[in-house]
């Protein structure tokens, strides 16, 4: 398998929920005011004082079997470079079927264009000589990893082999390419 398959990993051990990734993504990608393509999720469980907290930086999972691509009536939602899920703004009618189809609620309507917006894995950078996403670049704890899942020597592949990792809603059957290290 020589085709590139981009994936992302967030290390929940080192993520401190600072949301630098959220702000950096907004400025890099000119995201509409009031909207975010990525976000911080925390879950605290246990009973005082034995508490544990899981912290994640989440975004579109760029699923291998993306229901948002299957359901799009105009082909605007499609598989782009490296198997990422992209949206061609000019083809989007804003029917929102893809938003309903996404189990992760990762997509939204950009009010300025009426078209779908979401994380693009920064393909405009990645396919243009800067192989890091904006969120990965800014992250002060270096918790975000990005690379080719089909390259066994890539950092993302190594981490998946050597650390305990999980993806969100695996039973939804979408085969997400965004993983979290425990």
């Amino acid at each position: 398998m020589s085709a590139v398959s981009y994936g992302m990993i967030v290390d929940t051990r080192t993520c401190v929920a600072c949301a630098a990734c959220v702000i950096a993504c907004k400025t890099e990608n000119d995201v509409a005011e009031g909207f975010s393509r990525d976000w911080i999720f925390t879950a605290t469980s246990g009973s005082f004082p034995n508490l544990e907290m899981e912290i994640r930086s989440e975004r579109c999972n760029h699923c291998e079997d993306a229901p948002c691509v299957a359901v799009c009536p105009t082909g605007a939602s499609h598989y782009g470079p490296g198997g990422t899920v992209q949206v061609t703004e000019s083809k989007c009618t804003g029917c929102k079927a893809c938003i309903a189809a996404c189990p992760y609620d990762a997509r939204f309507i950009d009010p300025r264009t009426g078209a779908i917006d979401k994380c693009t894995f920064c393909v405009h950078r990645v396919e243009n000589g800067t192989p890091t996403t904006a969120c990965q670049e800014v992250c002060p704890t270096k918790s975000i990893y990005f690379g080719d899942l089909n390259d066994p020597e890539s950092e993302v592949s190594r981490l998946l082999r050597t650390r305990q990792a999980y993806a969100l809603l695996p039973d939804a059957g979408t085969r997400p390419k965004h993983f979290f290290l425990k």
């Binding site: 975010s36 469980s45 009973s47 929102k96 609620d105």
Partner: peptide
């Protein structure tokens, strides 16, 4: 007592706090 608290920073219109895209 066991508790579970979740937070999210996302407040995308029509999506949060729960989906309401089709009216």
């Amino acid at each position: 007592m066991e508790m579970q608290e979740t937070t999210t920073t996302r407040v995308n219109a029509l999506i949060d706090p729960s989906l309401h895209i089709w009216h």
